[in-house]
Design a protein around this nucleic acid. Structure first.
Lengths: 340, 340
DNA sequence: AAAAATTTCGCAAAGCTTTTCGTAAAAGAT
DNA sequence: ATCTTTTACGAAAAGCTTTGCGAAATTTTT
């Protein structure tokens, strides 16, 4: 049997729809006798108010949209996990969309989500070169349709709540950590050179060098592209100068780089210390276990979820938009020299 | 400005709602002149038909629910990725719910999803001990409300389409692989001993032993629980008998086991060969890179998605329920001895 | 017994869209 | 000029729910 409706129940008892609705909601307007009969029948036939009808009535879907660029990235999964956890606790469902680092898919997703499907939106922008394409559209959604919370990859052009990692600070702190353990020739390997995040981390790196009297050398920054040959690129870098520290801006790169370095006969951390961003599942289990910068993905997701739901449920609070900066922490393992 | 509706546009031009609806849908019933005006205005004000109203009208939400037990498991993420890919191509959104291996949360999720929110359901059951709790409810949903596709962790009690891994066969084949490379004392380490999947893999393992004249020894099966101390348990196992092969029933266990074995001075694969289930992100990067059984998660997701959408769009096809069995493949790396 | 109060239920609107059908006006045909 | 056809729009229903209000029926009060 298909899902039963109020109308069906009404017909069964020869009463009106409103009577049934009130009966199942236990209204005092309905006689106890009739209520009991209706409630029993409703329960037996597994009646549940149709969510779609309720959404239309209440102008609220109890659903939030989440758009992430890449689902096979552990950081984003952790964020998603955090978002789902809080949303679930507060009675919201999440529609998850993967933009696959494509501006086009991101735009399409926004179109769908902007048609009344969700009460709010949590997203992280793609790194796609054509970066400005959807920004104005998203700005319009944020300003007039539904609350939006941006995380990690954000944009100044959009006026909304944001949760970001302290990328500049963590680039700085991590570099100083290298310097403190005695490293002087610190190279950076970045697969995200075109993103704002990557730039901030490198800015922090530069500042730490400067503060410690080490001159910055452009040749120490290795930009890698998905299609390039990391092995070959690493050759150039390792031959370019004597290097004693490598800062990798994501986890997979860190793991691959460590593997390449070891194969070439360097000892880690004896010859070269390595630190990577994103404390995911990989870094713990490779040999040596890697020192990583944890961005606290789950916490970021929880925070974003809370901020969004607050906006949804208190639309006219009048509170100005906020940008929460989550501090990273360094998870020290075996890929870095010990502090003297 | 809030989202604009047909009514708003109608008021602006002094025409009825139906006229506006026809105009934006480019119906021939409306004069060209009026259509042009309305269409222009609609585009300028970013009019989009309200999805919720359409859902109510069409009795179709273009949304499918996905319930997975654990989002931090790479296999499930791969499946989710595959589901999303196909769903997206066919114009569906996905609502993803995490049951967190809890029967209770699974039940709550089903309640929500069974209220007209989704057109169909893809799920993998929890391993919770109280395994039968939601089965009858799910069976009812599958039989009378919306199409359901179960994957990986399925149940015979539910009549629906299924996509499963050939667990028995792969337990068998993997064990024979060990035997072929000269291993005779093969132990199994399973964190999923209470699941049907785990049992099937072990049945396959037993059959392979039997076929090759090796007697089965219960002591060679190590059941591990999340709270137990794997290090200690491994001690017992390694002291129990001289072991030359370890079959681990999930990826994290495989990686941890290899790490423990190495620490105890065994050489991998010299002394002990190791194979793990689920070819995820970890196994490739540890040293030695591990030989793994790939379950083709993404493909399973794609398959499940296709099957479900077909059921949704052809509800009365009358085709009997199907169980697709996806064959695993062995990704041979360095943690197993070479074939002579 | 009549008036007042309470109980118990139904009607209708609102949320937004699509589509069928009806009708007035305009255009065409005879 | 009259009849037929076409054009161009509006009314209404359907999808399902909740809720305020009106009304009939019953009970209580005087």
């Amino acid at each position: 049997m298909k899902k039963i409706t109020l109308k069906d129940i009404g017909k069964h008892f020869g009463v009106s729809i409103s009577t049934v609705s009130k009966a199942v909601r236990d209204s005092h307007e309905i006689s106890t006798e009739l209520k009991l009969k209706i409630q029993k029948y409703a329960k037996e036939n597994n009646y549940k108010p149709n969510k779609v009808a309720l959404s239309l009535l209440n102008k609220s879907t109890k659903t939030i949209g989440v758009v992430i660029p890449n689902i096979l990235n552990y950081f984003f999964i952790q964020v998603l996990y955090g978002i789902e956890k809080i949303a679930n606790e507060k009675g919201y469902n999440i529609i998850s969309c993967i933009s696959d680092e494509s501006n086009e898919k991101e735009g399409k997703t926004l179109e769908v989500l902007d048609a009344g499907t969700v009460d709010g939106l949590i997203m992280s922008l793609t790194n796609d070169s054509d970066i400005n394409k959807n920004i104005s559209y998203l700005q319009e959604i944020a300003s007039s349709q539904i609350p939006v919370v941006l995380f990690d990859r954000v944009s100044d052009a959009i006026n909304c709540d944001k949760v970001i990692v302290d990328d500049y600070e963590s680039g700085f702190k991590t570099t100083e950590y290298f310097i403190n353990i005695g490293c002087k020739n610190i190279a950076v390997i970045t697969p995200i050179s075109n993103s704002n995040i990557g730039k901030l981390r490198i800015d922090g790196y530069k500042k730490a060098l400067h503060k410690n009297g080490i001159s910055f050398d452009e040749g120490m920054i290795l930009n890698i592209e998905p299609k390039h040959d990391l092995d070959l690129e690493m050759s150039f870098l390792l031959n370019y100068k004597k290097i004693d520290a490598l800062l990798c801006l994501d986890e997979i790169t860190a793991v691959k780089v460590q593997s390449i370095v070891k194969e070439r006969g360097y000892s880690v951390p004896g010859d070269i210390s390595i630190i990577g961003f994103t404390n995911g599942q990989l870094s713990k289990y490779v040999t040596p276990a890697m020192t990583m910068v944890s961005q606290h993905g789950k916490y970021i997701g929880e925070m974003a979820s809370k901020m969004l739901i607050k906006r949804i449920e208190e639309p006219d609070s009048g509170e100005p938009f906020e940008t929460k900066v989550i501090k990273t922490s360094l998870i020290v393992r075996e890929s870095t020299k010990k502090i003297d």
